[in-house]
Write a protein that binds this DNA or RNA. Structure first.
Lengths: 231, 231, 231, 231
DNA sequence: TATGAATGAGGTTTCATTCAT
DNA sequence: AATGAATGAAACCTCATTCAT
């Protein structure tokens, strides 16, 4: 419908109301994220989310058709978008796979471990069995792509001779296990006001995790000491 | 179910009914444990617990004044038994610390990973924020002793020159992270009927975890590649 | 949307916009009629009506102060047009009353049974108790005149000796009952996607209805077959 | 589990509470019937039904799992049970089919036309499109069996030579049309406080309906008076 | 001691209506 | 005159807890 350009060809959403409308989904997602993390999915009432975003119950449903869809949107916003980033990093990375892994894990820690976004993983742990559809969604949109991304890095490292021949999928679990465990701990027991004697900073753990991964725990030189299976 | 004559054969609280009555709390706790593990605290209906224990709703409330108190009793009961055992192995162990660590992690996996007891950890993760008191209890009685035990092993390994000089507390997190992550995953997302493409058995993961810990991921010989901190 | 120059070209209310504005109530009433027929009063959302008429929710309320008033306007509008037509046929008819009845019932079927107008009757059935005022209006303006018209035909047939001596009002109910029943059925259960084993076309029913009526109604020598009252 | 009969082999539900429990479903069904008839299915709140039966909201759901199931139970109680009666009457009837039809229609009028049970048909007319599942249920449990029952009577009458050769399904519609129309009218417009000029009692209508039907239906020598199709 | 009928607060979602733009 | 973002009152159904028997 070609019409004479009044001023500009964009709709010019300049009224205060327009600006509110465009900001609403973001405001609601932020409110939802913090409440879901704090109280879990089931225990968060939709009215609370609306109130925290400064709107009424009904308004929430103008933007998200159900609480489950709201949760999915939160996950997409907080996590799924980060994974795409990781993929593009893999594509353009030039150096060693060890460097790429290091960068990825540190980056994830900074972006997820320290932010409420990390709490999402804890929510899914807690609620997966009661909301299988959400669990499937989370698995498809977050877990699988993340694992695949890391597994690909490991595979390339193996192919280039940089890494030893290990099962890539198992290696991924070993790589992410400590970090995810820390995240979960921080958002559950660690968030319950419990003081921990064996305190060490997450950064220490991650740093050591990387060091050990790449170097091994045992003092060298020595003859290989293959992993034992249980007697 | 052929059972002994109605009354006797017993010193004191001996009728079938008496035995039944004394077993009640235990039966209720067992029923509650398996249901809480399966569905979480909020999603488990008290009537289900009663039904699973073979009694009526009302009876449950004769023994536990509320669902919250039932939950606390379940966790205390399930954990209490796990505490005592364990540390003696360290005292009597003769071989290398690497062997001891290997044995411990495999043993834990067998006792936690595959049994409902492992579900306790998942429950605690899920409900810690709603029951800070229990979270503290769990931290003091389970987490702290476990970490201390492993840290001590690491410390001894370092002292004897078997291990490199690393922060023992951080090392513990690296050691147990993958396994706990697996346990949590199995009891939540893995139990929600989600199919996973990057499937590898927990045993594979644990085996690789031990191998990498002790050996390192990088192909050797080479010059050390010190763990990088984030650029 | 090429539109005429801003101001002129018009005697009085003649711009495209003006014409649009004057057509609005009519368009809204048509949209509302079809939706009320389809879904009933309560189940029709005002936004649907507006959307079907091509305007926004707010605009609907510029023309009708509430959903109830909209409903009343719809019924009045739909019925008003039906009132005027009709009675003249009786005055100018020359043939037998049986022929006239036949013509009338077939004509009604064609005009009501197969058109949305027939849905009006269904609406009134459904909502009469919630809108007594409308029910009275419908009774006075539609039901009474229709019954009176038919009753007059029956009365004339009796007077001329064409029909037997029966109660004219009762005869009217017998005459229109099957047809109205069919109309209502088609607009409710028949429209709910239910498949019916005892299917016969409405035309079959009406045809048989007329045949049986006249066999019983027409004056003719025969042996009496008295209607039984309940044992 | 053969056990010594304590006193009698029936549970002996003799306490006041027991008696209440057994009466509850009936009390709830009665309350539901009258409210559904008065206000329709959708407009009747489940809490109202409970209140009218003298219990709380929750209690209603102890006996009926949802409002739809409650409605179905009302239908079964009020209508479906009557149809079985009709079937057995057909089986044991000895006299003419005309007598049987007469008895059936009079009986239905007495049991349905004059009681709130008749209102159920009006509800279904009103709500069928919004509750297709209920419509299907009603069609299967009430309409089909009723039509089949009457069609069978007509078929037998034809087979024995008592009736002329007509389409049995169409004949059924002609037979029940006036009565159902009366019932619907009484429960909608007639219940809205509208006064009707062309008043004739339902009994008059039914009586005339039967008389006219049989004049047309019964096989008898006479000159044909063919039904006219529309000019 | 044991039962299970009864209660009623609580949470998600819908939709008629308003009003700032 | 027209819009559509925002509101908040309902309504269904669940389930922890009580208490008469």
């Amino acid at each position: 419908m070609p019409r004479a350009p009044a001023k500009t060809d964009s709709p010019a959403p300049s009224s205060a109301r327009q600006r509110r409308k465009e900001a609403r989904p973001q405001e609601l997602l932020e409110a939802a994220l913090s409440l879901f993390v704090e109280k879990g999915f089931a225990a968060t009432r939709s009215e609370e989310v609306a109130a925290k975003a400064g709107v009424s119950k009904g308004t929430l449903y103008l933007y998200f058709p159900s609480k489950e869809e709201l949760f999915k949107a939160v996950v997409r916003e907080a996590l799924a978008s980060k994974i795409a980033e990781g993929n593009s990093e893999l594509a353009k990375h030039q150096g060693s796979m060890a460097d790429l892994l290091t960068w990825m894990l540190w980056t994830w820690w900074e972006r997820l471990g320290l932010t409420p976004a990390g709490g999402i993983h804890k929510i899914m742990m807690s609620e997966a069995r009661n909301f299988p559809e959400l669990a499937a969604f989370y698995n498809d949109e977050v877990i699988e792509p993340s694992c695949e991304l890391l597994a690909e890095v490991v595979r390339r490292g193996i192919a280039s001779g940089e890494f030893r021949e290990v099962d890539p999928d198992a290696a991924v679990m070993v790589l992410i296990g400590p970090m995810l465990h820390l995240v979960l701990h921080e958002h559950s027991i660690g968030a319950a006001g419990v003081t921990h004697d064996h305190k060490c900073t997450p950064e220490q753990v991650l740093s050591l995790q990387l060091e050990l991964m790449f170097e091994g725990l045992l003092n060298r030189p020595r003859n290989p000491a293959p992993a034992r299976s249980p007697a």
